[in-house]
Amino acid sequence: MWDFVVDRREQLLINAWNHAYLVILAVLFATVIAVVLAVVVTRLPKVEPVANAVSAAGLTIPSFALIGLLLPVTGLGDVTALVAVTFYAVLPILRNAIVGLQGVEPGLVESARGMGMSEPMTLLRIKLPLAWPVILSGIRVSLQMSMGVAAIAAYVLGPGLGAWIFQGLTQVGGKNAVNYALSATIGIVLLALILDLALLLVGRLTTSKGVRV
């Protein structure tokens, strides 16, 4: 196993980098989409149960099924992987962003308005900073889920470490089959841990001092 990894370290690192890149990009997109949706949803109380139902139903759809649905539209490769990972990444962030925005004390919003802050200013300087810790925990969940979805997307030639898992599968019985699958799986677990730590750090830096716990 060790020799195997050392021999192929370059390819392994490239795959790991691609995996991380795909996941980070997808989670970034997802965060923007989810926060925008959450802002809209919390302004229209009637839509909220619908949004929650949609996000619960969305998480129910197996990732492999979504990949099958996307394939005719986006084709084999990176785009399908990115769209699929982004889709799943949106849902936990959306749910947490809605909870977070609703949890902002109305009195605070009121006083911001009283100080003459406009509606968008209130959103940017009061609501979002206060909701941020909750949104962040949604992002952590998304990140973990995305690692696994990205691995499955390798079946349709998406980038990343998943490729080696499928390569191992096609060589079952061969001498490197287990090495391929095992090093990729361990790589994904390690990557998940590293990105989770990085996110904690980012969270610490981006959470406003007053709401830090």
Partner: peptide, 29 residues
């Protein structure tokens, strides 16, 4: 800020969410 959704690797549809608000049948469910 009192809400704290403890979710290190929380899974998709864990009945977590804003559980206490759910009565026997709220609008969403």
């Amino acid at each position: 800020m009192s809400i704290h959704i403890d979710a290190p690797i929380e899974q998709p549809a864990v009945g977590a969410g804003p559980a206490p608000r759910r009565g026997r049948l709220s609008g969403g469910s």
